[in-house]
């Protein structure tokens, strides 16, 4: 009881986002998730200039056949390799793959790709979800049609589209579309984004349906503020918390989906390295070179886990019912 009352005094007067932030920081598991995500970010951003194709410091594409399938922390073969082919670090930190490429450099290159796939795909999904959910919630009762014939309401149309998209088995649909399209990293991002906006659209719609009946929105409408501005300035900011949570969890899902696609051979095409296709190339050497499976698998696992714990922590912090 005593701790409750001190909590109440310490949160009074603080802005809502400060309160959420304070509750979030108390959740040690979620903070650990956030810090891990931040670490991966730094690694990916540092790795980008280090492995860029023109003048790489650590070259992820350098083939060294005398040094193929070396285990982690092994020394390069100095007699068989030309001096300019020797790895910059002087040691294969994560070993080499079947072509003698440095797995550490490839993992570094893949870090940025994996994060980019997650962020772009979720960005597309959230944008579609916000737009369609917002329209269905605010303009839902408008009817569409020609002349005198009113056919459907906007709400029927958008919820119908959500139902249609939710009927498909999402992974198999993504696999189908990715297999039909020419292989490219952008196609994968767009396809994952286009097939994962339904959840966001659904709860944005629900949120706006309940918000638009409240006094501050009626006041805004009564002042003559146009619809799009009401949505953007008054409704969406109030619906942002669940969007943020689902986006964080969505990034985790998108990274997993990309790695699954890569694993089945429909991922980002070579020579680009992603964690998914390092793992998928390594599966042929499962028993001889298990590090080719362990290292990218563990990296994907840690990153996805960090995003999931971070998102769950946000969800709990945003939910006033769970703050005790």
């Amino acid at each position: 009881m005593a701790s409750n009352s001190t909590q109440a005094t310490s949160t009074s007067g603080a802005s809502p986002s400060r309160i959420v932030w304070r509750f979030f920081l108390k959740n040690r598991v979620a903070v650990a998730g956030m810090l891990t995500v931040a670490t991966f970010f730094v690694v990916a951003l540092v790795g980008l200039p280090l492995t860029k194709p023109e003048h790489p410091t650590l070259d992820p594409r350098e083939v060294r056949l005398p040094d193929k399938l070396k285990p982690p922390l092994s020394m390069p073969n100095r007699t068989a390799l030309a001096p300019e082919l020797l790895p910059r670090l002087g040691v294969y930190l994560f070993g080499t793959d079947e072509l003698g490429r440095d797995v550490f450099a490839r993992m570094l290159e893949g870090a940025f790709v994996s994060l980019a796939v997650g962020f772009v795909a979720v960005g597309i999904a959230v944008a579609i979800g916000l737009a369609l959910g917002g329209m269905a919630g605010y303009y839902g009762s408008l009817t569409l049609g020609f002349g005198r014939y009113r056919l459907v309401t906007v709400d029927t149309l958008i919820t119908g589209l959500i139902d249609v998209m939710l009927s498909f088995p999402s992974f198999f649909l993504i696999l189908t579309v990715v297999a039909v399209l020419p292989p490219s990293i952008w196609n994968i991002m767009v396809v994952i984004g286009l097939t994962s906006w339904e959840g966001t659209a659904r709860f944005v719609r629900a949120e706006i349906l309940s918000l638009r009946e409240q006094e501050f929105v009626q006041a805004a409408t009564a002042l003559g503020i146009p619809g799009p501005r009401v949505i953007m300035r008054h409704l969406l900011p109030n619906a942002v918390a669940p969007v943020l949570v689902s986006a964080t969890l969505g990034i985790a899902g998108a990274i997993l989906t990309e790695s699954g696609l890569s694993f089945l051979g429909f991922g980002v095409p070579p020579p680009n390295a992603t964690w998914g296709n390092i793992l998928s190339d390594g599966k042929r050497y499962l028993f001889d070179a298990p590090w080719l499976t362990f290292i990218p698998g563990t990296a994907i696992f840690l990153l996805v886990l960090a995003f999931n714990l971070f998102g769950e922590g946000l969800r709990e912090a945003f939910n006033p019912k769970l703050r005790r």
Partner: peptide
């Protein structure tokens, strides 16, 4: 969350090994 986050194929390979 570990079970949700681990890629299914990775878990499968670990188990098979």
């Amino acid at each position: 969350f570990a079970l949700i986050s681990i890629p299914g194929f990775y878990l499968a390979y670990l188990t098979i090994i």
